[in-house]
Amino acid sequence: MEEVNEERRQVQSNGRCRYRHSYVIFSILVILAMCYYVIVNENSETWKATIGVLFQKTFHNKTSSETLNTVTRGIVSPTTVTRGIVSPTTVTRGIVSPTTVTRGIVSPTTVTRGISAAPWKPPDPYYVAYPHKYSFVINEPEKCQKENTFVVLIIPVSPGNVAARDAIRSTWGSEKVVADKTVSLLFLIGWPTSEDSEKLQEDLLRESEKHHDILQSDFWDSYYNLTIKTAVMLEWLSAYCQNAQYAMKIDSDMFLNVKNLVNLLLPAPKQNYMTGLVARNAMVLRDPHSKWYLPITAYSPFHYPPYALGLGYVFSLDLAGKLIEAAQHVKAVYIEDVFVGMCMKHLGIDLTNPPDGSLFNVFPVDYNRCHYSKLIATTTRSLENIVNFWRDLQTPGPYC
């Protein structure tokens, strides 16, 4: 009898062991499943936004959804860049794949259509993918050194806006020497995003070979990436143009009186100097219908710090590196001129008001030969205005 009871106890003990073993395995599987769920969801949002170069992402624009190799909001990585040379990158739809490079220009390109997939979503609608390491696909790394530049003009422009580039090249962009000072000109472009992006990219390469005045970086060229565009401009200036004394960021729809710009800069400070149409105590727009709307979650103060309107501002070249350093500590907003003002505030550097409030104009100024001979920059209503106004100012005779 005792042997039977002992046998029963042994069977019960073995059953309890098997039960505990099964329970432990089941618990481990549940924990692993939970971890997998959390990681997948985190990777699809915040983690992928932060360390996007480690994951494959999908981009969406108004015309298409495209999958790029290791991309974050138009970022192509990894790329190896040395003095403007990109080699090699794996890309799709108008983006370069293995390349032959001469003079910092990527040519020719091998292009394939992207794979349609669900669009990647940023952590929030006002997320700006900066800081991040962007690379130059088309570069002019020796521009400032070769031309012994005094002031370099950087014009952000969309890839397809050839008309604006040609209008500027034939007017104020053609003024290369003023008062024995060299003025250099460069157009800054991102990746084309339209349906004809493959052709646009090929056209850009040919245009660059002809004029040698184009910089192109690997971010999507769009309105909401203007802050990235400005940061890339500052990075280029810091890396390739430190021998120059000043730079001006100016929009492609502007009329610029280059002579007056140079005359303004001749006696200007060589350090910590930025001027333009300076906005002070500007209120943050909370109306969701506004083009410049920013929610409290993106920027909580009620007023912006002082900033120079993005239509055209001038700064000493020492600020390029300082602003890039500040940008590593300031949360980026998509309004590029405001972001530059935020970086200036972080540096504790105030902006300089222009000596005359009429030098920089946010609204188009009706043409008057005398008036245009005195201003520095103004918005215009058309490219035709830019051409006609500039030509009239070049004709002999008194201005006033």
Rank of each mutant, 00 (worst) to 15 (best):
L185Y: 12
N225L: 07
V232E: 10
Y307G: 03
P398I: 02
V111C: 00
Y130V: 10
A129S: 13
N361K: 06
I105Q: 00
F302I: 09
Q216G: 11
A163P: 01
T70I: 04
K121V: 15
K181N: 03
R9H: 15
V53H: 09
T90P: 07
L204H: 12
L68C: 09
K259F: 06
A179I: 05
L234M: 06
A279H: 15
W220V: 09
H21Y: 04
I138P: 00
S290N: 07
V258I: 07
Q145S: 09
Q394C: 08
A320S: 12
E202G: 13
T70D: 12
L317V: 08
P305V: 09
M1A: 15
V284F: 06
T182L: 05
N385K: 09
I214K: 00
S174A: 10
Y224K: 15
Q145T: 08
N388I: 04
M283K: 14
E3Y: 10
F255K: 00
S252A: 06
V362T: 01
S116C: 04
A298C: 10
W390G: 05
I324G: 11
A33F: 06
D221H: 00
V387I: 02
Y223P: 15
T50V: 15
T112S: 03
K345C: 11
S87V: 08
G310R: 06
H212S: 05
V24H: 00
M254Y: 02
P396T: 04
V178A: 15
L265K: 08
L29D: 09
T227R: 02
K291E: 11
F360H: 04
T112D: 01
Y307N: 10
E66P: 02
L185P: 05
V4E: 13
I324L: 14
A308T: 01
S135N: 14
I155P: 05
A320I: 08
N69H: 14
S116K: 11
D218C: 10
H211C: 01
Y23N: 09
E147C: 07
G84E: 02
T63W: 13
S373C: 04
V137D: 00
Q242Y: 05
T182S: 05
R113L: 04
E42P: 02
E207P: 02
A282T: 12
E209F: 06
D221L: 00
V81I: 11
V152H: 06
T378K: 02
V71N: 08
G84T: 01
G74R: 02
I386Q: 00
H289P: 09
W220Y: 13
E235S: 14
E175A: 00
G94T: 02
N61V: 01
H329Y: 11
G52R: 00
D287N: 15
W220K: 04
A163M: 06
V152C: 01
W172T: 01
Y273F: 15
C17D: 03
